[in-house]
C-alpha cells in the first residue's frame, strides 16, 4: 500500500500504521468468523440429513433431537436398499443426466457456432427466436410436451425423460459468446483458404477451442437434469422408471414412513452429487458465472 513513501516515517506514523494494521486484522477476523458461521449454517441441514440417516428409529423420535447419532447404525441403509430399487433410480438419473448433457452440448456447440460465425439474416432471426423462448419457463409448456411424449409412446422411458431436456437456450447463447470472443475470423478464413471443408473446420478447429466452455456447459446441463423434478414426476409413473428425485419424493408417500430410512435414502443420493460437484466445481462456477454475463 504505502510503498510510494520516500520519507522516513516518524514514530507516530509507525504507531498509527500498526494500529491500522491491527484494526484491519481484527476486521478480517470478524469477517472470517461471520463467513464461517454462514457457511456452517448453509451446510447444517445437509449435515443433519446425513446424521439422521445413521439414527435408530427410537432416537429419531426422541426429544430433544440429537445432532450426532448416539448409537450409529447402518440398518436404515440396508433397509432402504432392500425395499426400494434405489440403485436403479440412481442409474436412471445418471443415464438421463448423461444423455441430456450429451444432447445439450452437441446441439449448443453446433448452433452456437453457426449463430456466432455465420451472420446471415436468417440466422439472426433464428437466434432471436431461440433467445426469445429462453425466458419461457419449462413449467409453462410441459403439459403439451407430455402429450407429445405420449403420442411418441415414450412415457416411462429414458427417452421420455430426455425429450424435455434436449436443448438449452442458454447453452447456445454461451457457446455463441465464446465463439465470438475466442475464435478469430482470420483463423477460419485461413483454414478455408487452405481448402478445409466447413465440417472439418468445425470438428478440428472450433470444437477444440471451445473445450473450456463446453466443459462448463456440460456440468451445468448434468446438474440441471440430475435435479429435475416436475418433468420426471409426470413422465415417469412406473416404479422402475423413476429418477432418484421422483423415487425419493414418492417413497415418502407410502403408508407409514420412517424418517431414518428416508434420510438414509436421501444421504445415499446426496453424497455422490456433492462429491461430483466438489470435483467439478471450477467448471461449474465458470458455467454459472457466465449465466450472469448476458448483458
Amino acid at each position: 500500500m504505502d510503498t510510494m513513501r520516500t520519507i522516513e516515517p516518524t514514530a507516530d506514523e509507525l504507531a498509527e500504521g500498526r494500529r491500522l494494521r491491527r484494526k484491519k486484522q481484527a476486521t478480517n477476523l470478524a469477517i472470517d468468523v461471520f463467513l464461517l458461521i454462514v457457511s456452517i449454517m448453509m451446510l447444517l441441514p445437509l449435515v443433519f440429513l446425513v446424521a439422521n440417516a445413521f439414527k435408530t428409529p427410537a432416537e429419531m423420535l426422541s426429544w430433544p433431537p440429537t445432532i450426532i447419532p448416539r448409537d450409529p447404525t447402518i440398518a436404515n441403509f440396508s433397509a432402504v436398499l432392500g425395499e426400494t430399487p434405489l440403485l436403479r433410480w440412481i442409474g436412471n438419473s445418471i443415464a438421463f443426466a448423461v444423455l441430456s448433457t450429451i444432447a445439450i452440448v452437441a446441439t449448443s456447440a453446433i448452433a452456437g457456432y453457426v449463430f456466432g460465425k455465420f451472420r446471415f439474416r436468417t440466422m439472426n432471426i433464428l437466434f432471436a427466436l431461440f433467445l426469445a423462448t429462453a425466458i419461457v419457463p419449462f413449467e409453462v409448456y410441459m403439459i403439451p410436451l407430455y402429450f407429445q411424449a405420449k403420442s411418441l409412446g415414450i412415457l416411462n422411458s429414458l427417452w421420455g425423460l430426455l425429450l424435455g431436456y434436449l436443448v438449452m437456450s442458454f447453452g447456445i447463447f454461451l457457446v455463441r459468446q465464446n465463439v465470438i470472443h475466442s475464435i478469430p475470423d482470420e483463423l477460419l478464413e485461413a483454414a478455408r483458404i487452405d481448402g478445409a471443408g466447413e465440417f472439418w473446420i468445425f470438428f478440428r478447429i472450433v470444437l477444440p477451442l471451445l473445450r473450456g466452455a463446453l466443459g462448463a456447459l456440460a456440468v451445468l446441463a448434468f446438474f440441471q437434469a440430475w435435479t429435475a423434478f416436475a418433468w420426471p414426476m409426470i413422465v415417469a409413473t412406473t416404479r422402475s422408471s423413476y429418477t432418484i428425485e421422483v423415487g425419493l419424493a414418492l417413497f415418502q408417500t407410502g403408508f407409514t414412513v420412517d424418517l431414518g430410512r428416508l434420510s438414509a435414502a436421501s444421504a445415499t443420493v446426496l453424497i455422490p452429487s456433492i462429491l461430483l460437484f466438489v470435483l467439478l466445481r471450477r467448471n461449474f462456477v465458470q458455467g454459472v458465472a457466465s449465466t450472469g454475463l448476458k448483458e
Binding site: 454462514v38 440429513l49 435435479t227 443420493v269 446426496l270
Partner: peptide, 20 residues
C-alpha cells in the same frame, strides 16, 4: 471453502434437501 459451502445447496437435489 466459503464459496463452495454457500453454493452446495444450489446443486444438491431438491428432494433430499427438502427432506432435511
Amino acid at each position: 471453502f466459503y464459496e463452495t459451502a454457500v453454493f452446495i445447496p444450489h446443486v444438491v437435489s431438491l428432494v433430499p434437501a427438502a427432506m432435511a
